[in-house]
Every structure is written in structure tokens, then in C-alpha cells.
Amino acid sequence: MPVPVHNLTPDDVARGLAEDTILLVDVREPHEVAMAGIPDAVNLPLSQFDPSAIPAPAGRRVVFLCAAGVRSIHASEAAQAAGLPYDAHLAGGLKAWVMDGQEIVRG
């Protein structure tokens, strides 16, 4: 049975990325990522999501990201259903990240 998906704030995720304690997995589609994204995020689109394709986190916490925080919850649930202990996402997605003034990359 999946555990609840934990909501992380943009500050939580920014700190984890800076400290290299988070592996950020962006489940948006490639055309969305091409417009804007978070530096160092790994793109695994939810439309063809395969939890076994998530890179080995090497001691980091896997955190999912999407545009608004819905698909990232689905990705976490899919990963848990596949037996992986990944139970966190960026609440509010990229929209919350941008509203918080965090760094993005374009194109």
C-alpha cells in the first residue's frame, strides 16, 4: 500500500538541490521542459513513465516535479506501486517554484 506523498516547498527543494541531497525528477512532457525547467532536474515524462528508469539516487531523496503538483503525485504513487520508496513531490510544481522566485532555465 502506498504511503502518502509528502509535500515539499520550493525552499525545501532548493536547499536539497544546493546540498545535493535531492534527485529532482521532472515528469512534465519534453515540450514543457523545453520552455522552462529547474536546473539539474532529470526529465521522465509521465506519459511514458517507467519507475525503473529513475536514475539511482546515490543517497539522495527522489522528489517529483510537474507543472502544478498533480502529475508529480501520480508519479510518486506509480513509483511506490513498483516497490520504490519515493514519496515526495514539489507541492505546486514549477508554478510554485517560479512564484517563490527560484532559479529556472529556459529553452
Rank of each mutant, 00 (worst) to 15 (best):
P4V: 03
F64R: 00
P10Q: 10
V5R: 14
A81C: 02
E103P: 09
P45S: 06
P4E: 02
A18N: 04
S47I: 01
V33C: 02
A18Y: 07
G92S: 07
A91H: 10
R60T: 03
Q80E: 06
V33H: 03
V27K: 02
P30C: 00
C66M: 10
P85T: 06
G16R: 03
A67G: 05
G93A: 05
G16F: 09
A58Y: 04
L23Q: 05
V42C: 04
R28K: 04
F49M: 10
G59L: 03
P2M: 08
D26I: 01
G37Q: 13
N43I: 12
A58I: 09
W97F: 01
F49C: 04
L8H: 09
T21K: 00
H74R: 15
E29D: 02
L90F: 09
S76Y: 11
V33K: 06
V3N: 14
G69R: 00
N7I: 06
H6A: 15
F64G: 10
A34G: 04
R61Q: 12
V25M: 11
S72R: 02
K95Q: 12
R61W: 05
A67C: 04
H89D: 08
Y86H: 15
A81P: 03
E29P: 02
L17V: 01
D100T: 13
D11A: 15
V27D: 01
E19P: 05
H6R: 15
H74V: 11
R71H: 13
P55N: 07
H31K: 14
E29V: 09
P4G: 02
Q48Y: 10
A81L: 02
A82F: 08
A91R: 06
S72D: 09
V33F: 10
G101V: 00
V62K: 06
V25A: 00
P4F: 07
A75K: 06
Y86Q: 13
P10K: 02
